[in-house]
């Protein structure tokens, strides 16, 4: 395999983004096109699923062409097409998956079905030749909050996940209740940078001892209760301070659990992924904690944290070299789990 370069076309359409990318040998991103639909969604205060999938249909062809053009390659140079088949919004997933199947069939290259969360994890490999398993990763985004042990390429053990709201979802909901807009992550981060995180001591939910699961609904209720009380007592809402206090409560729990995971498993590298990996407090908190403990911390470039197709192409590469191809009857699975195997040929 090593004597020839491998080019994978990655396609991602599981939620907001229609994205396509060409990645060489799993790590070198030659193009990474993201057609962000955020502007369209903003009036609704969240992602609107069918608006999303209809727009995917309009954009996917253009995005794939652009990804090829920017890489300087053609469809015939591609060794395989990798595509997200779950988890995500079923209508949105089907657009990308059907498009990828058609390409795979017409150009006669293998189809590689990729789990979106596995994609987020692989974002750490892109434009970086040093990150390699084993490592601990925190995947935190609008729909997911998982702590995963990456034992080897494509070999995962999920240590814990959220029991109610995902971390990014909590950011979105609190941002909405503070009138900070959508997406909530960057909005809260920005407001928090101007606020005092010790303003209110919101509850941190660590759950049972030795547990790597998360729960953010109690924190969400605590913030909403506080806002309610302010309204009833006509206390002015100190948005920046509340945002900072809320953010600190989320980040404390995320950081302490991921550190504990590294110490318990005696794995010395921590990688972040998912949109929440862009959060400045998470990065700085973990930066300090890891350097104090002699651990290594890595996070992908900002564009590679949120949904993108380069991460899907990278995950595809590691399946391609093991010849773990998918059948054409591969279906989109809205609630796909990390360990659910892809149907191999």
């Amino acid at each position: 395999m090593k004597d020839k370069d491998v080019y994978i076309l990655g396609i991602e359409s599981s939620c907001d983004e229609t994205a396509a990318s060409i990645v060489k040998n799993g790590r070198e991103s030659l193009s990474n096109i993201i057609y962000s639909q955020i502007e369209i969604h903003q009036p609704y205060g969240g992602v609107v699923p069918e608006v999303a999938s209809r727009n995917h249909i309009k954009k996917i062809d253009i995005i794939v062409d652009k990804a090829l053009e920017e890489s300087g390659l053609t469809l015939n140079d591609m060794d395989a097409v990798a595509v997200t088949y779950g988890p995500g919004l079923i209508g949105s997933l089907l657009v990308g998956l059907s498009f990828a199947k058609a390409l795979s069939y017409s150009v006669d290259i293998p189809l590689l079905g990729i789990n979106h969360i596995e994609g987020h994890i692989c974002a750490n490999y892109i434009n970086n030749y040093h990150v390699m398993p084993p490592f601990i990763t925190l995947v935190a985004s609008g729909g997911h909050t998982n702590i995963v042990v990456v034992k080897d390429y494509g070999v995962y053990e999920v240590l814990g996940q959220t029991r109610d709201d995902a971390a990014g979802e909590a950011f979105d909901k609190i941002s909405r209740s503070l009138d900070l807009g959508y997406p909530g992550g960057p909005a809260i981060d920005k407001a928090a940078s101007k606020g005092d995180s010790s303003f209110i001591n919101f509850p941190r939910s660590y759950l049972e001892e030795d547990c790597f699961d998360f729960s953010f609904s109690g924190l969400k209720s605590a913030v909403l209760n506080y806002l309610n009380t302010c309204k009833m007592k006509e206390i002015p809402i100190e948005t920046n301070n509340i945002a900072a206090s809320f953010q600190a409560a989320v980040i404390d729990v995320l950081a302490s659990k991921v550190i504990k995971a590294a110490l318990d498993t005696q794995i010395s590298t921590i990688c972040l992924s998912g949109g929440v990996a862009r959060n400045s407090l998470l990065r700085s908190t973990l930066g300090t904690m890891t350097s104090d403990l002699g651990l290594k911390l890595h996070f992908p470039e900002p564009d590679l944290c949120s949904d993108n197709a380069a991460m899907i192409a990278s995950a595809g590469y590691f399946k391609f070299i093991k010849e773990e191809y998918s059948h054409f009857d591969l279906n989109a699975i809205a609630n796909l789990k990390v360990k659910e195997p892809v149907d191999n040929i």
Binding site: C15, V47, P87, L89, I90, R163, E169, A334
Partner: peptide, 24 residues
């Protein structure tokens, strides 16, 4: 979550469907 557990679902996680729209 209570209703779903009461119906006999034993799956470990019953999470918010806000992002996925529907959980099955």
């Amino acid at each position: 979550q209570g209703i779903i557990r009461g119906l006999g679902v034993v799956e470990k996680y019953i999470t918010s469907p806000t992002y996925t729209l529907v959980n099955e």
